[in-house]
Simulated scan of single mutants.
Amino acid sequence: MTSTKIVLAGGPERLFADGHVRRPENPNEKVKILLGSGYEHFVHNGEFLTIEGENLPVFQWSERTKIAE
């Protein structure tokens, strides 16, 4: 995957206050984003979306995990 931007799909709405396009630190096959007391996990299943001339990978929400105390 060569893009430094990704599109997030699914997950809690409060995650998208700044939009669905993100620049993750490590855009591999899985991305996790800290939200509140846990992490939202997203995976890339091969889908791409063209936004403003850029072909961006779409990462679909897969699960939420809690932060261990």
Rank of each mutant, 00 (worst) to 15 (best):
P57F: 03
L34E: 07
N28L: 05
G38K: 04
E25S: 05
V43T: 12
F48D: 05
A68P: 06
F16I: 02
I51S: 14
A9S: 13
T4F: 06
A68K: 10
E52F: 11
E63F: 07
F48E: 01
R23W: 12
Q60T: 15
F42W: 01
Q60A: 11
V31K: 09
A9R: 15
G19E: 08
L15I: 03
K32A: 06
S62Y: 05
S62E: 07
Q60R: 15
N55S: 15
K30V: 14
G10E: 02
F42A: 06
R23L: 00
N26D: 14
I67D: 01
E52V: 13
A9K: 13
V21I: 14
E52K: 14
V43F: 12
T65P: 01
V31E: 06
P57R: 11
I6D: 04
P27G: 01
I51W: 02
N26L: 11
P57Y: 05
F59R: 08
Y39G: 07
I6P: 00
T50D: 09
S37F: 03
S3W: 00
A68F: 07
A17L: 12
T4E: 12
G38Y: 04
H41K: 11
G46F: 02
H44I: 00
I6K: 09
A9D: 13
K30N: 07
K5N: 03
E54A: 09
G53M: 08
L35D: 10
I67E: 13
F42L: 04
Q60S: 10
S3G: 01
L56A: 08
L49S: 11
P57M: 02
T65R: 09
I33Q: 01
L49M: 12
A17H: 14
E29K: 15
F48N: 09
K66S: 07
L49H: 09
E25L: 02
F16M: 01
H41T: 10
I33W: 09
F42G: 05
V31I: 14
H20A: 06
T2S: 02
N45H: 10
N45G: 09
I51M: 09
S3R: 10
I6H: 05
D18H: 13
I33N: 01
H20L: 11
I33A: 05
